[in-house]
Nucleic acid binder design. Structure first.
Length: 502
RNA sequence: UCCCCGAUAGCUCAAUUGGUAGAGCGAGCGGCUGUUAACCGCUAGGUCGUAGGUUCGAGUCCUACUCGGGGAGCCA
């Protein structure tokens, strides 16, 4: 009796005959034996076909199958260390569903633009698949954490009537003639829910119309936002710390293989232990403008230039060897591939070398009162091996609803969490202003219409309590954990500024 | 909006100071019983992003435009 199995289940059915339903990832015919790499969505498995085990015409047909042809393969499961999952299938029967011809994405390298234009197909490749699995774990860990800690899920609206932090960054939609906006945060709605349930969270897509074309920005991304009644800033930091730690632990436990395939820095993730670093904004300003930062940047520049020299040396050596001649064909080809790789790495390195002095200058010239720029966050996070909390930003640089610090009225009780190794901000959060008069004054100062905020002000009228929360960007978190440079790889169908592919 | 870089075969990239467009991968055919981005032989595949200009001659130089990448500003 043959059972249909998924590749991820094969370890427990060694010695049995099973059927796998999947797609051809790679075919290596070799005379009288063929190695089919099959993927079925749960993993990869090598299937070995010996010529005399199948009808001759079927064996020939399989030999000419293109990548991504859909197949059902039946065979005996046996241990084989040379196969990706440690087991392989000794094939006894093959059913071809749909042969594929000229699949555009090959196991070789492709450019960013090409892959995004073919995102619907690229999703089948190893790298997007691994990232997708890790994203799934991250989201599951997020829900588990809040559900297990007494939080109630509240689904806040996508169409919103009021802005969280300034209206110029919102997408406007025509709602039966009335202008509404796509949500950029569920926070204001969540605050009212917190007064009902105590501890709540929302989780969904969020939209920003900012003209930001960087590796950290999407116009549509997913954000989870907890909001808690009766909490202060230290309480929020503890919550965020425990929360992020739990996500990292879950990914390490559930997705070790995927992290390895992606080449993620597993040791660095394991080193992400609590407590995280805690700095105030003012301390960060001191660090940025200090000699220590200038030395740090200079050391980094020196390191980049050292790498550049080494690469240029290798380049020259290879070119000299080529010019000398007498190389075998395979050596020439190997050299050509290496040259190509070095050249593209040199371009990337040169950008870092060019940017270093600019970023060093931005840091040195930083004045108290400005919001931290992307490069400033990068510098601070590069200087620390653990995530860094930055607290107490200047009031003027932050949103109207943040509570002023009781000791220093110039700053608010807020925090950002910077992921280590230069990834930058993954969380922004704050204690909310809970005093009716102070909040009304801030709304006036920002020039907003108080009528629009009537219901929000009501929360301060009826049993107001200290409360606060934060938002964590899912794609940024996934990018940090997986080691991806650009967050567009961390969502299935990314929406970029001025660019929607599919 | 500004700055830098780029656009050559299906994909990734070469092409010496302007002189007959190449390679690898992929595709097709053939070979190989243990392959791991396999290997070996053969074949097909191009209006060099678009438009104009300089020149005996332009992939290469000049101008404009289109598209893409990176960075800045702005922001999660």
């Amino acid at each position: 009796m043959t059972h249909i199995k998924r590749i991820s289940e094969l370890q427990v059915v060694i010695g049995h005959e099973v059927t796998l339903n999947g797609w051809l990832y790679k075919n290596r015919p070799s005379g009288k034996v063929q190695f089919l790499m099959l993927r079925d969505g749960s993993g990869l498995c090598q299937c070995v076909i010996e010529k005399d085990k199948l009808p001759e015409d079927l064996f020939g047909q399989i030999k000419h199958l293109g990548q991504e042809s859909s197949l059902s393969i039946t065979g005996l499961v046996r241990q084989e260390p040379r196969s990706p999952g440690g087991v392989e299938l000794a094939v006894t029967a093959v059913e071809i569903h749909t042969p594929a011809v000229d699949y555009p994405i090959t196991p070789k390298e492709h450019g960013v633009d090409f892959l995004l234009k073919n995102r619907h197909l690229h999703l089948r490749s190893q790298k997007p698949w691994c990232i997708g699995r890790i994203r799934h774990t991250v989201i599951d860990a997020i829900r588990r954490f809040f559900n297990d800690n007494g939080f109630t899920l509240i689904d806040t609206p996508i169409f919103t009537t009021i802005a969280g932090e300034g209206e110029q960054t919102l997408f406007e939609v025509d709602y039966f003639g009335q202008p509404l906006h796509l949500t950029q945060t569920g926070q204001l709605y969540l605050e009212s829910a917190a007064m009902s349930f105590g501890k709540v969270y929302c989780f969904g897509p969020t939209f920003r119309a900012e003209k930001s074309k960087t590796r950290r920005h999407l116009t549509e991304f997913w954000m989870v936002e907890p909001e808690v009644a009766y909490i202060d800033l230290p309480g929020l930091l503890d919550l965020a710390e425990e929360f992020v730690f739990s996500i990292v632990q879950r990914v390490l436990k559930d997705n070790h293989d995927e992290l390895e395939t992606l080449g993620a820095d597993i040791a660095a993730l394991e080193a992400t232990q609590t407590p995280f670093v805690r700095l105030s904004y003012s301390e960060v300003v001191d660090i940025l403008t200090s000699d220590r930062t200038q030395k740090f940047m200079a050391a980094q520049l020196e390191q980049f230039q050292g790498q550049k020299r080494m690469m240029e040396q290798e380049l020259a050596q290879i070119e000299a060897a080529d010019a000398k001649g007498g190389l075998k064909k395979w050596q020439q080809e190997k050299n050509a591939r290496r040259l190509q790789k070095i050249r593209s790495e040199l371009v990337e390195l040169q950008v870092k070398i060019d940017n270093n002095p600019k970023h060093a200058r931005l840091a040195a010239d930083f004045c108290w009162g400005k919001d931290l720029g992307g490069s400033d966050e990068t510098i601070i996070s590069l200087m620390h091996a653990r995530p860094v909390f930055v607290t107490h930003y200047p009031k003027a640089a932050k949103a109207f609803y943040m509570k002023a610090d009781t000791e220093d009225d110039r700053v608010v009780e807020n925090f950002d969490l910077l992921a280590p190794a230069g990834f930058g901000e993954i969380i922004g959060g704050s204690v909310r202003e809970d005093d009716y008069e102070k909040l009304l004054a801030r709304i006036d100062e920002e020039g907003y219409n108080p009528d629009s905020y009537q219901w929000y002000l009501d929360l301060r009228k009826y049993g107001s309590v200290p409360h606060g929360g934060f938002g964590l960007g899912v794609e940024r978190t996934v990018a940090w954990i997986t080691g991806e440079k650009h967050i567009r790889q961390c969502i299935a169908f990314p929406r970029l500024m001025d660019k929607v592919y599919l």
